[in-house]
């Protein structure tokens, strides 16, 4: 005979919030409101300024093509800086990543030192690194490239270390068991496992370096940023518009190519 199922306690649709989590959420929202007031956020000020924005934007058009050739050469230099800085930065990030990876570092003190250095590279803005290298090697793209190398190590070093830490330990144990040296285990088991993640990080780094290399020119570290700074200083907004459009196309092409490569390589 069919017996009706005993009535079970029905759990609530939503769990009661944890008091600490609730308090933290309220405090976070409160801080957001204070922050908006702190930065003087005002929709009315923004709306009132829209006509000025319109006048400025109108001044950008039509973009001037008078100096298109030197602008394109500067754009090429910018891209060269990004490629050279990223490639060398990625190469240097590999040993930094190994030394900063918890299970691969030869000693905890080495791991802490490597992580500290990577953090320093990441924390100091690339503009400051560019100034530092302009003072060291003089104005021009070499200083910008050095700044991008340091910035890339700060970005890739951390993610490479994490990718290597997450690599499957089985193949590493197998190679250790057959008498391989630690360096061989890293080269033959850790790197291949971490490769997809490292390629993705490297490509993101190239995108980031392309955008950064534009800004680095503002402090004299070479590339199209120097052209942009000169155009803005002399209120040559139509030429500035050309430069901005060129930068936009370059960044767009690099991002699209990077996405395509990521999809094709990481399988």
């Amino acid at each position: 005979m069919h017996r009706p199922a005993a009535r079970l306690d029905r759990p609530p649709r939503f769990d009661r919030p944890n008091p600490v989590a609730f308090l933290a959420t309220v405090l976070a929202l409160g801080f957001l409101v204070v922050s908006l007031q702190g930065v003087g956020f005002s929709a009315s000020t923004f709306v009132a300024g829209l006509p000025q924005m319109g006048r400025f934007a109108a001044g950008l058009f039509p973009p001037s093509t008078d100096r298109l050739e030197p602008v394109l050469w500067a754009l090429l230099e910018t891209f060269q800086m990004a490629v050279a800085g990223t490639a060398l930065g990625i190469l240097l990030s590999l040993p930094f990543g190994v030394l900063a990876a918890r299970r691969l570092s030869p000693h905890p003190s080495v791991e802490i030192a490597a992580r500290g250095l990577i953090s320093l590279f990441r924390t100091v803005p690339d503009l400051i690194w560019a100034l530092f290298f302009v003072v060291t090697v003089g104005l021009g793209p070499f200083a910008g490239t050095l700044a991008l190398i340091v910035d890339t190590i700060g970005f890739c070093g951390r993610f490479f270390a994490e990718a290597m830490e997450e690599a499957d330990r089985g193949p590493q144990e197998a190679l250790t068991a057959l008498g391989a040296r630690p360096a061989a285990v890293i080269a033959c088991a850790v790197f291949p496992a971490a490769l997809p993640s490292m390629i993705a990080t490297g490509l993101f780094s190239l995108e980031k370096a392309t955008r950064s290399s534009v800004v680095l020119g503002l402090v004299g570290a070479g590339g199209i940023g120097m052209e942009l700074e000169v155009a803005l200083t002399f209120f040559n907004y139509q030429e500035a518009a050309t430069i901005i459009l060129c930068i936009f196309v370059l960044v767009l092409v690099v991002e699209q190519a990077s996405s395509l490569l990521r999809r094709r390589i990481i399988t």
Partner: peptide
């Protein structure tokens, strides 16, 4: 096995212990 490498590359790893070149 190292998943992304070929069967041959994985077998070659067997010689790592006797290879003076290591990595």
């Amino acid at each position: 096995l190292v998943p992304r490498l070929s069967a041959l590359a994985n077998v070659l790893h067997g010689a790592l212990g006797r290879s003076p070149f290591g990595a």
